[in-house]
């Protein structure tokens, strides 16, 4: 398991991506397959920055990566506005416009995505990728 904690500032995205890539290398992923998983994690963090914290750069994001029984787990906990999965509509393929792409990509790449909003503040997002 690897845990990271960082502020909701897009300048850290590059560091997080490098960490996810290194974690994936240890788990046997490389090249394009690894890059796609990195992309899904990156998109999830971007959504937290943009929607959870409304572009504020002082929010806290706790990130955990782990591997268990043939699955990779990526957990992101934020303390901003709660995510409402009902708002996350998968983009229609012929609907070419900015916005909505991030969730579309996450859904295409990951096998399971769960939004837990049962805590008093924020959201715990869990993404699972089967190996």
């Amino acid at each position: 398991m690897l845990q990271l904690s960082f502020k909701s500032d897009a300048k850290y995205l590059r560091i997080i991506r490098a960490s996810v890539k290194s974690f994936l290398e240890i788990s046997g992923y490389k090249g394009k397959d690894a890059m796609m998983i990195v992309l899904a994690v990156d998109e999830a963090i971007c959504n937290i920055i943009r929607h959870g914290y409304n572009e504020r750069t002082d929010g806290i994001i706790n990130f955990e990566m782990s591997e268990s029984e043939g699955k990779l787990y990526f957990r992101l906990r934020d303390y901003g506005k709660k995510s409402d999965p009902k708002d996350f509509k998968s983009r229609k393929l012929d609907n070419v416009r900015p916005g909505g792409l991030g969730v579309f990509l996450m859904q295409k790449i990951m096998d399971e995505i769960d939004y837990d909003t049962s805590n008093s503040t924020g959201t715990l997002l869990t993404m699972v990728k089967k190996k």
Binding site: G31, K32, M35, L39, D42, E43, C46, V96, R97, P98
Partner: peptide, 30 residues
Amino acid sequence: DSSGLATLIELLQKLKKLNGRLCLYNINDT
């Protein structure tokens, strides 16, 4: 990422309105 794609989509849409042209090249496989 999707932010980069969105930036390119915005540019493409703007150029279409202005009757402009856009072409991307030398894109790696990833």
